[in-house]
């Protein structure tokens, strides 16, 4: 038995076709309206660059006060309109990328009720998942707290 990966999962119904929701993740003009920028939080968008193909990268570069943050990643799968997979990392200033670099976001779209359901799964750190697989059963019970953390789910069912 492998312990569950460390992940955040959200599901959301959209009153829009899967194609439109899918495209909203790749269209720089759309991304500026909902992913980054003043409509989401107090920040200025300096650059949104999207190279939407497998192996292509993206960069959502913003300034928050004195802090410059680049949200970067590589597209791993683009199966419009069913599935979109990319890596996700946040780079602060010139700091080298760290543990979170290896996080991965998977979007699954399913047509439903005049719209679609999007399931977003953000999995943390491939390195970590590897250790977890190697160690098999046992280690989740190593510490009560860790077990709870690992099986943590979005609290709203």
């Amino acid at each position: 038995m492998s312990p569950p990966p460390i992940q955040v999962q959200l599901r959301r119904h959209f009153a829009a076709a899967a194609e439109r929701v899918f495209d909203a993740w790749l269209d720089p003009a759309m991304l500026r309206q909902w992913m980054m920028g003043p409509s989401v939080r107090d920040e200025v968008v300096l650059r949104v660059a999207v190279d939407a193909r497998v192996g292509g990268t993206f960069s959502f570069f913003v300034r928050r006060g004195d802090l410059e943050l680049d949200h970067v990643g590589t597209y791993l799968e683009l199966s419009r309109p069913r599935r979109l997979v990319f890596t996700w990392a946040v780079q602060v200033g010139a700091a080298p990328l760290a543990a979170e670099d290896l996080s991965q976001v998977t979007l699954d779209f399913e047509a439903r009720d005049n719209g679609c359901v999007l399931t977003l799964t953000h999995t943390m750190d491939v390195k970590w998942a590897e250790y977890a697989r190697r160690t098999e059963a046992g280690w989740t019970t190593m510490l009560g707290g860790l077990d709870r953390v690992l099986s943590s789910e979005v609290p709203h069912g």
Partner: peptide
């Protein structure tokens, strides 16, 4: 992600 999906939902 919750905040962003809210925004996307409103936008669409």
């Amino acid at each position: 992600w919750g905040e962003r999906l809210d925004m996307l939902e409103a936008l669409l």
